[in-house]
Nucleic acid binder design. Structure first.
Length: 883
RNA sequence: GGGCGAUUAGCUCAGGGGGAGAGCACUUGCCUUACAAGCAAGGGGUCGUAGGUUCAAAUCCUACAUCGCCCACCA
């Protein structure tokens, strides 16, 4: 049990963050034990790449998850936040290959097995970077359950899912046009292709008619692919080409013959209306080729260089060099008619940014239609709810237009496809266990398919593979379906949709009930943070300079309804200042609490107005914070606490306790201390999910020996704290204190100079309230206050104001400048008159009186009365000064 | 070509059918024994444009403009 002691005047996160994280982790506070007596709350972390380092996107994503997890944990749920990392096929393999390259080696020099050993070694050595960084952020994950997409359990789940899909006929292997990345040397799926608007050219080329003088003019953006042309297609309705249909053309350069065919796909409007068909290197041409039984020629190889099929002159050339040469050759032969500029979308690899080459190749696919349908229904029927709702449309639109998913990759690092091919009889065998003999012909020359699965294939199983599936585990039955998925909006397709359809296919239940989508973290100029731009802000550096809590608070308050968040250091400073404010308010409380353990059962009579007020406001903070969290308005919840702590607790309540604490009777001071302790303690609980480190640190000073904040119960509603009378009375007092301060500032009354303020309060009940609480005004507006129903002689040498129905006189002796006072009052009167005419206009409107709700009308009437009284007081004061 | 978001104070952004808000910056005065990463007071906005719905619109609807993002097989 530590004692309360004085704290330094500035909060230093470095002194406490590591300490508390170790305390929590080693104390097992993050551990979630299956307990049927409790409600379960579960978030499965979107696994960052093992190769990764924490970036701002991770920081935001994980802060939001941590806020939810800590909050639910305090609410008494068994809260499991399950962490893990993703093997990230291409990224990791590329990293290790780059390392090998420095040794002058390629992966082929090592061979598959040795290479994979190197990758695992790399993972063991560097794979913890990001999880260590998540700890710095304060992530309260259950690290004892940390998983990896290629660990034994996840791999078993992958194999099981593949086999069951295969057995159901939902996985097939086919020669198909796919997106080939010549740099990564693998196929990638449709969504891994990034389309970028690129400035290019449209080349018009003559294709001569065989045995004739005529020609067909075609237009293409990629002249090098003409070497793989196997037809020219026109629209059947296109009059211009009627006479060419069925004729044969001579493909320039290659000198091959091409038929002229018709296909509805061809647009008469675009280019020349004649389309060169290259089934080997264009998705549309591939389809046309299938419809017309055209041969497909691969002229561009896996390395992006021209193949022998392209002809001796071009074979071996890089595809871009080849384009140049083809254009030159055409020009020389007089077949190039013109070149136009054209801006068009070009596909790039999302990993390495290389231009994708559509290529025909034999790959594995998942048949999507049957899987997509239940996933669409689950969201339509709100079994999975998107927050904000608008992302539902994006999800549905994608699944409704889904195409089959290419799942094989020509990589070594990943889950190997569990299929064995027999070279003797051609049989392919999918199996859970290794196959060493062909089950059909008995050949022992069977070989496992060389490809691995798309990394997203294993991510798709993450919500249940991490909980033990395909085994029937206690975790699975307790935590599944998980509660909510928290993720950035850019992986709805890659990940969210795939988890939903996979879960529905294998768990017969949704993977999570809610999907909480947040935006991207952009730089100050609104650009995506990226390595190539060098505009990224390193969260770890921010944690070093401002502390993890500041970063978290800034990210949470910056995140609004799925919109992107620009990173501004000013905001970070603001968050840091807030935490420092909290720290100092706590110092104040601790200094005054001393060894006092406080009484918790003070009877109501002992409370002053300020106490009743702050307790009532505190209750509102509890209610609002909880409400906003329930609705995933995390930023709004944090803002409620910011305002409560700064504007109400610090600026008013602490100031109002000082007279009692410094000069009050022991009993009075004890009451103030008890309220300080209760409100600060409760507020720390409310703040803990957002700023876990500083709140835990203060908590242990405030309540030495108490259970740590991380598992303190979330503040419940205490209706008995509600005190609307106190709130109204305090609002009036605050209003009057501000008015007096305003006068003093305007009149340049030195801060130390006291003033004898007179308040004229005609109403008797209100007058009693003022009599009782005028010491607040005296303390905070520096002076003495006398309260009267009316006074015969209103002082001339006084500044005047009206607030909350009360006339205020601040006698200033010689300091008063009548002209200046008249000017000030006139300005005030103008504002009152303007507002009054607006209100009266409204009250003259019969439509308003008839249709507006009663309370709105009553409110306007109240305003009218108050403004009228204010006007009269100001006018009379001006008349008096004018005499 | 579709879809989505944004447009509010000098800057960055909340809010959202009935009196325009915050932080930063700015002006003035304060090192007042929790805090100068602070305290007090203040200036500053016809809430992108045009229509519409409504007793009432910054807020809802429709168009448009500008910016940004996503999707899309027109060579």
């Amino acid at each position: 049990m530590t004692e309360r002691k004085t704290l330094p005047s500035a909060y230093n996160p470095k002194l406490v963050e590591e300490k508390w994280y170790r305390f929590w982790e080693e104390g097992g506070y993050f551990r979630a034990e299956v307990d049927p007596a409790k409600r379960s709350f579960c978030i499965v972390m979107p696994p960052p790449n093992v190769t990764g380092e924490l970036h701002m996107g991770h920081a935001l994503n994980n802060t939001l998850q941590d806020v939810l997890t800590r909050w639910r944990r305090m609410q008494g749920y068994t809260a499991l936040w399950l962490p893990g990392t993703d093997h990230a096929g291409i990224a990791t393999q590329a990293r290790v290959e780059a390392m090998l390259a420095k040794e002058g080696l390629s992966r082929f020099d090592l061979g598959r097995e040795k290479f994979l050993e190197r990758v695992w070694a790399w993972k063991d050595k560097y794979g913890h970077t990001i999880t260590m960084q998540l700890r710095r952020l304060g992530a309260s994950c259950d690290w004892e359950r940390e998983r990896f997409t290629m660990d034994e359990g996840c791999s078993e789940a992958v194999k099981e899912v593949f086999l069951r899909l295969y057995e159901r006929g939902l996985i097939y292997r086919d020669n198909y046009i796919v997106n080939w990345c010549p740099h990564c040397r693998t196929v990638i799926s449709d969504i891994e292709v990034e389309h970028k608007e690129t400035a290019g050219h449209l080349y018009y080329i003559k294709y001569p008619v065989k045995d004739g003088q005529d020609h067909v003019l075609i237009a293409t953006t990629r002249p090098e692919t003409m070497l793989g042309d196997t037809a020219v297609a026109v629209n059947p309705a296109d009059e211009r080409y009627r006479d060419f249909i069925g004729k044969r053309l001579i493909l320039p350069l290659a000198k091959r013959e091409l038929p002229v065919i018709t296909d509805d796909y061809v647009e008469t409007e675009f280019g020349t209306g004649a389309l060169k068909v290259t089934p080997g290197h264009d998705p549309n041409d591939f389809e046309i080729g299938r419809r017309h039984n055209l041969p497909s020629v691969q002229v561009i190889g896996a390395d992006g260089r021209m193949t022998v099929e392209a002809g001796a002159r071009y074979a071996g050339l890089d595809r871009w060099e080849c384009r140049k040469l083809v254009v030159e050759d055409l020009q020389r032969e007089g077949l190039l008619v013109k070149i136009e500029d054209l801006s068009h979308a070009v596909g790039h690899c999302y990993r390495c940014d290389t231009v994708i080459e559509p290529t025909v190749s034999k790959q594995w696919f998942v048949r999507m239609k049957p899987l997509a349908e239940p996933a669409i229904r689950a969201v339509q029927e709100k079994r999975v709810v998107f927050i904000p709702e608008r992302f539902e449309k994006i999800y549905l639109n994608w699944l409704e237009n889904i195409r089959d998913w290419c799942i094989s990759r020509q990589l070594w690092w990943g889950h190997r496809i569990p299929v064995w091919h027999c070279p003797d009889c051609g049989e392919s065998t999918a199996s859970r266990d290794d196959v060493d003999r062909c089950p059909r012909c008995g050949s022992e020359r069977v070989e496992q398919d060389p490809d691995v699965l798309d990394t997203w294939f294993s991510s798709a199983l993450w919500p249940f593979s991490t909980l033990g599936w395909p085994k029937d585990t206690a975790d699975l039955s307790f935590f599944y379906p998980t509660s909510v998925l928290v993720t950035a909006r850019d992986i709805i397709f890659f990940w969210v949709a795939r988890m939903i359809f996979t879960a529905l296919a294998f768990m017969e239940n949704v993977p999570f009930r809610e999907v909480f989508i947040h935006g991207l973290v952009l730089d100050a100029l609104g650009r995506k943070m990226s390595k190539s731009l060098g505009n990224g802000v390193d969260p770890i550096e921010v944690i070093e300079s401002h502390g993890a809590d500041s970063l978290r608070f800034m990210l949470v308050t910056g995140n609004t309804s799925g919109n992107d968040l620009r990173f501004h250091f000013e905001r970070l400073d603001g968050a840091r200042n807030f935490i420092n404010k909290l720290w100092n308010a706590s110092r104040f409380a601790l200094m005054n609490l001393g060894e006092d353990t406080g009484r918790k059962d003070l009877d109501g009579a002992a409370y002053e107005l300020a106490d009743r007020w702050i307790l009532s406001r505190y209750r509102q903070a509890v209610l609002k914070t909880t409400e906003h969290l329930d609705l995933y308005d995390l930023g709004e919840a944090a803002r409620v606490l910011y305002d409560f702590v700064w504007d109400e607790f610090c600026d008013w309540y602490i100031e109002l306790t000082k007279p009692r604490l410094y000069r009050g009777t022991p009993q009075e001071a004890a009451v103030a201390r008890a309220v300080l302790r209760k409100v600060l303690g409760g507020t720390l609980k409310l703040l803990h999910p957002f700023v876990p480190f500083v709140s835990e640190e203060i908590w242990h000073h405030l309540e030495p020996g108490a259970v740590p904040l991380i598992i303190q119960p979330w503040p419940a509603d205490e209706p008995e704290l509600d005190d609307s009378a106190a709130e109204e009375e305090m609002a009036v007092l605050i209003d009057i204190i501000r008015s007096i301060r305003h006068i003093r500032a305007e009149m340049k009354v030195p801060p130390g100079r006291r003033a004898a303020v007179i308040l004229i309060v005609p109403e008797e009940k209100a007058r009693r309230v003022f009599e009782q609480n005028k010491h607040y005004i005296e303390e905070l507006a520096a002076g003495t206050v006398s309260v009267a129903g009316d006074i015969a002689a209103k002082p001339a040498q006084a500044a005047h104001a009206v607030a909350a129905g009360v006339e205020i006189f601040v006698p200033l002796g010689g300091l008063i400048d009548i002209k200046k006072e008249q000017f000030r009052l006139t300005k005030e009167l103008d504002a009152v008159l303007q507002e009054l005419s607006r209100v009266e206009g409204k009250l003259r409107n019969t439509g308003f009186l008839a249709k507006a709700p009663e309370e709105v009308v009553a409110k306007e009437r109240g305003k009218q009365a108050e403004l009228t009284q204010k006007r009269e007081a100001l006018e009379s004061r001006l008349r008096m000064l004018g005499q």
